[in-house]
Simulated assay, not measured.
Amino acid sequence: MRLAELSERSGVPTATIKYYLRERLLPPGERVTATTAEYGDAHLRRLRLVRALIQVGKMSVATAREVLAAVEDESLDHHMRLGAAVWALPFDPGPAEETPETAAARRTADELLRRLDWRFGMELGALSPAYGLLVNAIAALARLGYPHGVENVLPYARLAGELAVTDLDLVEGFETPTEQVEAAVALTVLYEPVLLSLRRLAEAEESYRRYGEGG
């Protein structure tokens, strides 16, 4: 397809597509003449991913480019490629300094991973951006005096494990390894607001059942 058709099918203006091409967010098309190129389904998929990163994920072009570089890294096996691509998504930084709260939170996180037998998580530890995010969250709970022990966090972790099965089942519905990696990144960004909204709706429903007219 030519640029105009790519724009029509993707819903992305031609000027925006040209910008993505210049910024290397979109691979170049197959050159037909000096002034025209052909684009394929891979470009449609990449446009959907770029829009998820920039429009929904609110990432800068530079950050989106880093994520896409991880998506394209075919030197890794499928597991590591999926992980690298998702980990390239922006995270809050890990603990800036060691405090009694962060040290205790790190012990809690380690014990949590041990109880769950999440062996890959235990091997990576602080190398994982998600691990640093977890330590920060547990430390914040501790500082503010809210429940933060292993037994408090464990039910959430078990639910997260069930969600991971659902996530990977969804990703495996895509045919090629590249499509699966692209989908893993896009769905991580697009489903996080879904999870947040469903949690709040579920809490409102449970509150109504316990304390409202239905209680």
Rank of each mutant, 00 (worst) to 15 (best):
M1L: 15
L6S: 12
G11E: 05
T14E: 03
K18C: 00
K18G: 00
K18L: 02
Y19R: 03
L21A: 07
R22K: 09
R22V: 02
E23P: 04
R24S: 15
R24I: 04
L25F: 08
L25K: 14
L26M: 13
L26S: 02
P27F: 10
G29L: 08
G29D: 07
R31P: 01
T36C: 06
E38W: 12
E38G: 13
Y39I: 08
Y39E: 06
A42M: 09
A42H: 14
R48M: 01
I54K: 02
Q55R: 15
V56H: 06
G57M: 07
G57S: 13
K58H: 15
S60D: 10
A62F: 13
E66T: 15
E66Y: 08
A69F: 07
V71E: 01
V71A: 05
V71M: 08
V71Y: 04
E74R: 15
S75N: 13
L76M: 07
D77F: 04
H79S: 09
M80Q: 14
R81L: 11
R81V: 11
A84P: 01
A85V: 14
V86M: 04
V86W: 01
W87Y: 12
A88C: 08
L89W: 00
G94R: 07
A96Q: 11
P100S: 06
T102F: 04
A103W: 00
R107V: 12
A109L: 07
D110H: 13
L113S: 02
L113W: 05
R114S: 14
R115P: 00
R115A: 15
L116R: 14
W118T: 10
W118R: 03
R119M: 02
R119Y: 00
E123K: 07
E123C: 02
E123Y: 02
L124E: 12
G125W: 09
L127C: 05
L127Q: 13
S128H: 10
S128D: 15
S128A: 15
S128N: 15
P129Y: 12
A130W: 04
G132I: 08
L133W: 06
L133V: 10
L134M: 14
I138Y: 01
L141W: 08
R143I: 08
L144Y: 07
L144F: 10
G145W: 12
G145K: 13
Y146M: 15
N152I: 03
V153N: 03
L163T: 05
L163F: 10
A164E: 02
V165W: 04
T166D: 04
D167T: 09
V171L: 04
E172N: 09
E172V: 05
E175T: 15
P177W: 06
P177N: 10
T178E: 11
Q180I: 10
V181S: 04
A183K: 03
A184H: 00
A186W: 04
V189H: 02
V194W: 05
S197A: 15
S197G: 08
S197R: 14
R199L: 01
R200H: 12
E203F: 01
E205Y: 10
S207E: 12
S207H: 14
S207R: 13
Y208N: 08
R209N: 09
G212D: 11
E213Y: 06
G214D: 09
G215P: 11
G215V: 14
